[in-house]
């Protein structure tokens, strides 16, 4: 090992205060590789907000603002308005929420900004539970997953956020996965070129919440896409394209490898498999 390797300045991630093997930090690094230096990023309460800096030091080399929980897209709307009025055109405005800050407590401001077709990108980095408070169940927690306040597993399905965002008629909707960085980066580049609202939903495992080892963060994420539970696709001006064709491995390869699904029965695994078989490609398996 050497210390010369970190002489290259990264826009985000070096020295962050997150856990080893943090999926959120991987998502952030990949996204910033696409977005570049002229980006203002707002992050509501989340691991991503707190790991980015403490006191007078931050890991971000772009303007970063840790917003209140409910309102990152609203703040971003205001930032865009302020840039517009000052004639600044070449800056990306991004709000970057976790699953809670986007789909749950932050949903109101997200739907508001999307409906207004604000010129911005909203990212949902999804670790499928409320990890910044220790791993409680939220709307993005998948069926049967065990959490710190749901030892018996979640009883209902994950809310389909990309479909909800698609219904806003925004410029660009995409799913992404930290195990597919080239795909992720290409999607951020597309989103950054849009004049209106873009939504990118990134699967970013949290090994602590998922009951996997830190070094499995990327591998497990990859399995989610390979088994068909996390389809990689985009809706560019409403036109749907699958951006990666997986082998569609058995869902068990993904589910059984995780502690949060340790109580999954064979019947429940089969239910998951049947769901993927029926719905891969969108609701009703349209693609």
């Amino acid at each position: 090992m050497t210390d010369s390797a970190n002489t290259a300045e990264e826009l985000f991630g070096q020295g962050h205060a997150g856990c080893k093997g943090c999926g959120a930090a991987i998502a952030g690094r990949q996204a910033m590789a696409a977005l570049g230096r002229r980006t203002i990023i707002t992050v509501p309460a989340s691991c991503m907000a707190t790991l980015g800096g403490g006191n007078t030091q931050t890991t971000w080399r772009t303007p970063f603002y840790h917003t209140l929980f409910e309102c990152a897209p609203a703040v971003a709307s205001g930032i865009r308005a302020a840039l517009d009025i000052q004639g600044v055109k070449d800056v990306n405005v991004v709000s970057w929420g976790g699953d809670a800050g986007s789909a749950d407590i932050g949903f109101q401001s997200l739907t508001g900004a999307a409906e207004r077709q604000e010129h911005m990108i909203h990212v949902l980095y999804d670790n499928e539970m409320y990890m910044n408070t220790g791993g409680q169940t939220g709307s993005q927690t998948p069926l049967y997953a065990i959490t710190t306040n749901g030892a018996l597993g979640k009883k209902v399905r994950k809310k389909n956020m990309p479909a909800i965002m698609e219904a806003h008629g925004i410029d660009y909707v995409a799913s992404a996965n930290i195990a597919f960085p080239a795909d992720l980066i290409a999607k951020f580049q597309k989103a950054a070129a849009k004049e209106g609202f873009s939504y990118i939903h990134i699967l970013a495992p949290c090994h602590r919440g998922w009951g996997i080892k830190p070094d499995q963060t990327v591998d497990i994420a990859r399995r989610a896409t390979e088994c068909g539970l996390w389809e990689l696709y985009e809706l560019d001006q409403g036109r749907r394209t699958r951006t990666y064709e997986p082998g569609l491995t058995p869902v068990a390869d993904y589910l059984r490898a995780q502690g949060r699904f340790r109580n999954l029965t064979d019947a429940e695994t089969a239910e998951y498999q049947a769901y993927v078989d029926a719905h891969y490609g969108g609701w009703g398996g349209k693609n």
């Binding site: 090992m1 050497t2 210390d3 010369s4 390797a5 970190n6 002489t7 290259a8 990264e10 985000f12 991630g13 070096q14 020295g15 962050h16 997150g18 856990c19 080893k20 093997g21 943090c22 999926g23 930090a25 991987i26 690094r29 990949q30 590789a33 930290i178 195990a179 960085p181 980066i185 830190p214 070094d215 963060t217 990327v218």
Partner: peptide
């Protein structure tokens, strides 16, 4: 791009890992 900590980089054709930034994940 998989490293959460920006600890590995390709410089002058060789990969090197930062002693200081790597968390050992």
């Amino acid at each position: 791009l998989y490293c959460p900590d920006g600890a590995i980089a390709l410089t002058a054709g060789r990969y090197a890992i930062s002693e200081r930034l790597c968390k050992g994940c």
